[in-house]
Every structure is written in C-alpha cells, then in structure tokens.
Lab assay of single mutants.
Amino acid sequence: MFYPNSPQTSPQLTQIPYGQQYAMMQRQIQQPYHPFATTEPQARLYPYHYQGPIQQEQGGFITQQSTAASPQYVQMRVTPVDQSIMSGYPNQTANGSSSSSFNYNIHPQQQQQQQQQQQQLRHHAMPVGSVPLQDDRYRKQLIVNYLAPDVTSTDLHELFSRFGELDGARIIYDKQTNMSKGYGFVYFCHAEDAKEAVERMSGYEFHGKWLKVGYSTNPLNIVPSNSSPYVHAGSRGAAG
C-alpha cells in the first residue's frame, strides 16, 4: 500500500523548493479562506456584503464582478436614472436638479381664491374633541361614552347635575331594538360647569363602566337656548 506522503511516492527534499517541504498533501497545500485577509477597505468593513468592485458596462447597466450573493443577503441591482424623465418638472436647472418651490404660472386672482378656499376649509374642519370658538353652545354640550346598558337618562342627569344647572341629558337608544347604544349627551347651562365635568368625570366608574367624557361637536345635538329642557323620564321611549 502506498500513501500520498510515503517515501516511495514523495520526491527528495532537495528537489522541493524551500517553504513547501512540509506541504505535501493536497489539504495542506490548499490555503484556508480568510474573509478579512484583503487589501480593499470595503471588504474589511463589510465582509458579507462586499463582492468586489463595481464596473460600468456598455448599455448603462451596473453589474458586479463577483458571483451571486448568499441567500441570506439580498443584493440590489441599481440602474442609472434617465434624465429625460425629470425634464417635465418646473424650475429645473441645466444640471438636472430642481428647486423646492414650484411655479405653475397661476393667475394671481386664482391663487388668492385657492388660498381663501383653504382658509375656509381649515375654519370649518374641526378635529374630534375640539371646541370651536365662534359658538358658545359647543362648550356646553358633552358626550358621555361607555355607558352601561342599564343607565337611563334620569341617572345621567343626576350624575352630572352636581356640577351645575343642566339644560338636559339623554341616552341614545336603538330604534329597532330599543336598547341603549352605550353613549349619551349632557347639556349644561354654563360653559364653566361643562369644563369642570369634563375634567372630573373622564375615567369615572359608573355602573361598572369607566366613562369617557368630552365635548360634543355635532351641531345636530345642540340644544337651542330658547327651547324647553328635555324630559328626564326613566322610560326608554321618552328618553330616546
């Protein structure tokens, strides 16, 4: 039997160049792979992502010199942007860049009308829970959420009447099932009393439920100042 490094198959040491006398086997001759043993700084910083320098080929596509990437890492192929796409944008300079302001050559009167329309939209648009300043009635009506099913309009009136005089209180019921929808409205005579009720009743436990109280901004629920107070009856038909 002959071994790869046996004296019968191995040459004389004098015939082997210096430095390879003890590297006779194939696994010894093959050098191990060192990912950080390279002179390129990109490979030292990113050993798993770097795959060699990027070269520009004919046709405008950018390719990489090395083989496919590892399945664990996804390499994105980048193509140059066609400058003709950006030619339609206004205020574009000769080098292809555009300024931040756009001039669509709008007539001054049209621009003024658009600004007025935007101001009107901001004036009428009102986020949930906010209180408008032009109508004091919005500051007097509250919406009470997360009410228990057994709470009546009379219970709601008695709960909030300790903060001040009320114009009314009612629970909203479903017309088909005649069941409470879980929320109601309270109408105060003074805005200061309503503000105190919002601050003190939010998070209050009532009939096993934690109440959420806020201003009601729905104009359909506003009680006119010259109208008669609501009837605080315990029956659902009268309260709904």
Rank of each mutant, 00 (worst) to 15 (best):
T152F: 03
V151I: 05
S202T: 14
A239C: 05
I222Y: 06
N226L: 08
L142F: 00
I85K: 13
A94F: 10
M126S: 04
Q115F: 13
T93E: 06
G96I: 09
Y146I: 00
R27Y: 02
E192V: 08
F102K: 12
Q31A: 10
T39Q: 14
S161E: 15
F61E: 11
Q55S: 08
P149T: 10
A191K: 13
P11E: 06
G129W: 13
A194D: 00
Q115E: 09
P127S: 08
T63Y: 06
M126Q: 11
D167E: 04
P32K: 10
K181Y: 02
V151Q: 01
V144K: 01
R170L: 05
H157F: 14
R139Q: 06
Q111W: 09
Y173F: 05
N103C: 05
Y230A: 03
V128K: 14
G203W: 06
A125K: 08
F61W: 03
T79Y: 03
I85S: 11
G59P: 09
Y230Q: 05
P11Q: 12
I16T: 14
H123D: 07
F206Y: 08
Q28F: 03
H49D: 06
P90H: 12
I222K: 03
Q116W: 14
G208L: 02
Q112C: 09
N226K: 11
V231W: 14
N145P: 00
P127F: 09
P108M: 11
Q30D: 15
S235I: 14
F185W: 01
Q64R: 13
Y3T: 12
A197H: 00
L45I: 14
N91F: 05
C189N: 09
K140G: 02
I172T: 01
H34V: 07
G96S: 07
S130I: 06
S130N: 08
A233Q: 06
P17S: 08
M201I: 12
A239Q: 15
L211V: 06
S87V: 03
K212V: 07
C189E: 04
Q64I: 03
Q119P: 07
D167Y: 10
F160W: 00
D82I: 07
Q110Y: 15
D193K: 14
G96D: 13
Y22E: 11
V144M: 00
S153C: 04
R27E: 03
P132V: 10
V151T: 05
R122I: 08
P71C: 07
A238T: 10
Y215I: 02
S216A: 01
F36T: 14
A191C: 13
T177Y: 15
S161C: 11
T39N: 06
G129S: 08
Q64M: 05
S153E: 13
D155W: 02
I29P: 14
A23I: 02
H157V: 15
A125Y: 10
L211E: 00
Q51D: 06
S153G: 15
Y146H: 07
Q15P: 10
L211Q: 00
Y89L: 07
R27G: 04
I222N: 03
Q21M: 03
P149V: 07
F206G: 01
S202R: 06
R44Y: 02
K209A: 02
P41D: 05
Q113W: 14
G129Q: 06
Y50W: 06
Q113I: 07
Y104E: 04
I143P: 00
V213K: 00
Y104K: 12
A43H: 11
H107M: 14
Y3S: 10
D193A: 07
S98K: 15
H232G: 07
Y187G: 01
L220Q: 02
S235W: 14
S66G: 07
P127C: 09
D82Y: 09
R236T: 05
Q56L: 04
N218W: 01
Y204A: 13
T217A: 03
Q111D: 12
P41W: 12
Q21V: 02
I29T: 12
P90W: 08
A169H: 00
R77F: 01
E40L: 12
Q120G: 08
N221G: 04
G88Q: 13
E158H: 09
E196L: 14
V186L: 03
P35A: 11
P35V: 04
Y138L: 03
D193N: 11
Y146D: 01
N5Y: 04
R236E: 03
T154C: 14
I16C: 09
S161A: 09
H232D: 03
A37R: 14
H232Q: 06
R170Y: 01
R139N: 05
V131L: 11
Q83S: 09
L166I: 03
P17W: 03
S84V: 06
Q118D: 07
L147D: 01
Y22G: 14
T9M: 07
D136E: 09
A43T: 13
F36I: 12
K209L: 02
P132L: 11
Y73W: 05
I62A: 09
T67I: 09
Q116R: 10
P11A: 05
T177L: 03
A169T: 13
P7N: 07
F61P: 12
S87K: 14
S66E: 08
M76Q: 14
S161V: 11
K209M: 02
G203H: 03
V213P: 03
M201L: 04
I29Q: 06
V144G: 01
Q114F: 08
E57D: 07
I62M: 06
Y187V: 02
G203Y: 10
Y46T: 14
Q21R: 15
T63M: 03
Q92S: 09
I171E: 00
S100V: 08
F36A: 14
Q58M: 08
Q72T: 08
A194W: 00
R122S: 04
S6F: 05
L121I: 09
Q15K: 14
V128E: 07
S87H: 08
P41R: 14
Y146K: 02
Y48S: 15
T9S: 11
G164V: 01
G60H: 13
T39I: 05
N221I: 13
Y104I: 08
N178I: 14
D82M: 06
K195E: 11
Y230W: 03
F2H: 06
D150H: 13
N91C: 10
G234F: 15
Q134L: 07
P17G: 06
H207S: 05
S97N: 07
V223N: 03
I85H: 12
T9G: 06
Q56G: 11
Y173M: 03
V231N: 10
A68F: 11
M126R: 08
E205L: 08
T93M: 13
E196F: 15
A238M: 08
Y46D: 14
E158M: 13
L166Y: 00
A239T: 09
R44V: 02
P4G: 10
S6D: 10
D136H: 08
L142W: 01
Y183H: 02
R200E: 04
K212D: 01
L121E: 04
Y204P: 01
P17I: 01
F160H: 00
Y230R: 04
H232Y: 13
Q58E: 07
N145K: 01
Q42I: 05
L166A: 00
Q8A: 09
K209Y: 03
